[in-house]
Design a protein around this nucleic acid. Structure first.
Lengths: 202, 202
DNA sequence: TCATTAATGAACACATCGTTGATTTATGAT
DNA sequence: ATCATAAATCAACGATGTGTTCATTAATGA
């Protein structure tokens, strides 16, 4: 045994703990979960849990870290030249399509953690991720002068709006395809909520 | 003693518990708070806590309920004829100004509960409130045909965006006035994020 | 096959919980 | 000012969860 983590027992133990975590969040919400609950559901010794995690918060943090890492990975797989094009009005941005696809792959956990009983700090991380890898790059050429509102508020507006739509999508159990969803977001952001609603005829 | 709650002791006890709650959320976050912490900080007997609340979650719920009630109250004080006008482009909507003012009045608690360590279910209630009392009334005349995207997603987009800007405002310790903030939101929602950013010249 | 390491089982001291019953204190009505 | 009532206190309870320990068993990979 030795170089680079590969003991099957460790992999298995971590997996059953993660699975138990998802089940239990669904059953009673993260706050009400005890380490006892986790190890009973996972059918492992309670001491074994502490071999891998400090406490339940450490477990949550690490599972969230993995989700964020997974998002960073798919960023690198995209062609950096065509990801951020603002003039493709009727074509959803590849970044957004990939984001929805990734969320769909982890739908059960994402729905819980981004839902009303989820973790607001994770929502924050998602917004930061969109800001750093998406919004800021689209607006990279912008100087302050052309902005009608402070840039921080514009960024907060757009990132929160995107997350809100993602949450709504998960809440409704993903009736639309990732592609459709990306298109919806592009439409609203490009034309504006009022215009999309038919309130602004100009 | 008798009809309708007025015993000074009860009022005082509830107040010191609420104050202790705010302090402790700031210190260690809601999850790490114990009933012991609360009663020690409030300098009351632990049994007294259970005379008024079932547990710490009941306490949180009830303090959130009061904030929501306060929001419903200010709705009724507004002139229903001038609250929702979509053609007042450079004039912030009275509803939004009042909302920012109300949040400012409860800034310390709001910042905590709407922040990264806050309560996502309360964020949900705020969004529902905006949706029921603001967004839906503005869009009341709309029929499905003029919409470019599903109405649920448009609503989620706008309410989440508004909340996101509120969070950003609290995070930065409210440098702008309620009036300025309302104007920022109206501008982005009316002209659209892309136009406000200077990306769409048309 | 076998040294290594993960997982188990049992026990520990400690903390918090929610409740109880007896007692003291503050309150509002008369 | 008096006094019945209700709120708050105090001390104790059994129960449950925590995080850690140590000796033992079982699985793993070389």
């Amino acid at each position: 045994m030795s170089n680079l983590k590969t003991d099957r027992r460790i992999v298995r133990t971590k997996k059953v703990i993660r699975d138990a975590l998802t089940d239990l969040i669904e059953e009673k919400g993260f706050e009400m979960i005890t380490v006892r609950d986790l190890t009973e559901k996972a059918d492992i010794n309670r001491g074994t849990f502490y071999l891998h995690y400090q406490d339940k918060y450490d477990l949550l943090k690490k599972s969230e870290d993995e989700l964020i890492e997974g998002m960073k990975d798919f960023i690198n797989e995209l062609n950096p030249n065509i990801i951020f094009q603002t003039n493709v009005q009727n074509e959803p941005l590849p970044f957004l399509v990939k984001l929805f696809e990734y969320i769909a792959e982890n739908a059960r956990y994402m729905k819980l953690i981004l839902g009303p009983n989820g973790d607001p700090s994770f929502q924050d991380r998602i917004k930061q991720f969109m800001r750093a890898n998406f919004i800021e790059k689209i607006m990279k050429d912008l100087k302050g002068e052309s902005l009608l509102v402070p840039v921080d508020y514009l960024m907060s507006y757009v990132t929160a709006a995107h997350l809100g739509v993602i949450q709504q999508w998960l809440e409704g159990d993903m009736q639309q395809s990732p592609r459709e969803m990306a298109l919806i977001l592009v439409k609203i952001s490009f034309f504006g909520p009022a215009h999309v609603a038919g309130l602004k005829v100009e």
